[in-house]
Amino acid sequence: MPETRYTKDHEWVRLDGTTATVGITDYAQQALGDLVFVDLPEPGRTVAAGDTCAVVESVKAASDIFAPVAGHVAAVNAAIVDDPSLVNRDPAGEGWFFRLEGVTADPSALMDEAAYKAFLETL
């Protein structure tokens, strides 16, 4: 059964076996503001946890998106490249970024929802 975990970089990771789907949190999309450009990783690329693998741009700033866990890029969400505002409208759903396969990371190394909410309280 999939479980959603979070990083301190305000990304969410939906872990399902050896598959991880990655996006940014509602907090992140609000902080970034209206997104105007998204650059996604090449499918097939192997990434280590912490690697920069996507970029989002708002009117005034660019921000990196990191691989929250190691794996190889199996799919990317072309819909957010065509319409970056999808990330603002539905960050946890239609606005997902990419899917990693071959993931062996221990979910407990990442924050669960309660821990992420507590983390947001500290900001």
Partner: peptide, 10 residues
């Protein structure tokens, strides 16, 4: 998500 570079404004 981390600011790559502060924009001109800042």
């Amino acid at each position: 998500m981390t600011d790559r570079r502060e924009a001109t404004l800042e």
